[in-house]
Amino acid sequence: MENGPPQPSGNSPPPKPWERAGSSSGPAPFKPPSAGSTSDVVEASGTARPGEIVSTANRNTAVNNSTLARPVPTRPWEQQQTYGSSYGGYNTGMNYNSGYGVGTYGGGYGSTYGSGLYGNSMYRGGYGGLAGGGMYGGGMYNSGLGGSMGGYGMGGMGGMGGMGGMGMGPFGDQDPNNPYGAPSSPPSFWVSFMHVMQGVVTFFGRVAMLIDQNTQAFHMFMSALLQLFDRSGLLYGELARFVLRLLGVKTKPKIHPLGPNAHPGPNALPGPNQPHGNQHFIEGPKAAPGAAWNDVWGDNAQ
């Protein structure tokens, strides 16, 4: 620190603009400044506590002498720890946890996110509640075992809930998670047999329902597909006709331009005698040369 830089090696910078200006707007509510260095001033006041390290443990107890009773958002890294400790191996990198939470999203931008949405209500409460209390712990697992039918009824998990219930059924009372007190006596043969039968019946019922639903879905899918093909064929025809007409391509005329009715020749017999009338679709092209031939003959004859 001794070797000074090349330029005006100053031990004090140029005076600040506000130091050149006048004093402030009025009496400040602060005690007048003391003379001497900062460390001397602090030691003279008796508040110096050099090198104090505030650990996380005593921070929460010692600090809350705040006069404001405002809810404080959970710290991102503490959220991460609850998450990480239950799942293991995820929170090994301290940097990752702490940095992620506040450094980027917690600190500023995400403090709205961090505290309001994700932090308390959604993320922590939601996640913990879901994994710990709601689905697995209380609702699904325990009550599913406690009452044999209750498990199926509450099963939000779909078909396999029945399997779990079936396997566990006879031994439900010995489950360590059973909250209903002491284990009762083991069920008799018929009771357990009926449990097994019930499980089997439920199982096949579920399988049947699955097959039924799959069949229905397949049917609907196929019929929708066929309908789609049908419609798309029609649409294609219409579009092609329109495009060709726009391009000026002469398509096969629907009505013969010089039908037998329009012909002045002797063979032109209007009325019901003409078998096809005005609507010549297939025979039209054939009729034209026929009429021409007749013309030729007629001209020659006359």
Partner: peptide, 22 residues
């Protein structure tokens, strides 16, 4: 020299008074 611990959450910024040393 000393530690100021009263805040109940992260302290994001600290700023000296530009006219008063303490």
């Amino acid at each position: 020299v000393r530690t100021f611990k009263e805040h109940a959450y992260c302290v994001y910024s600290a700023a000296w008074n530009p006219r008063h040393a303490d």
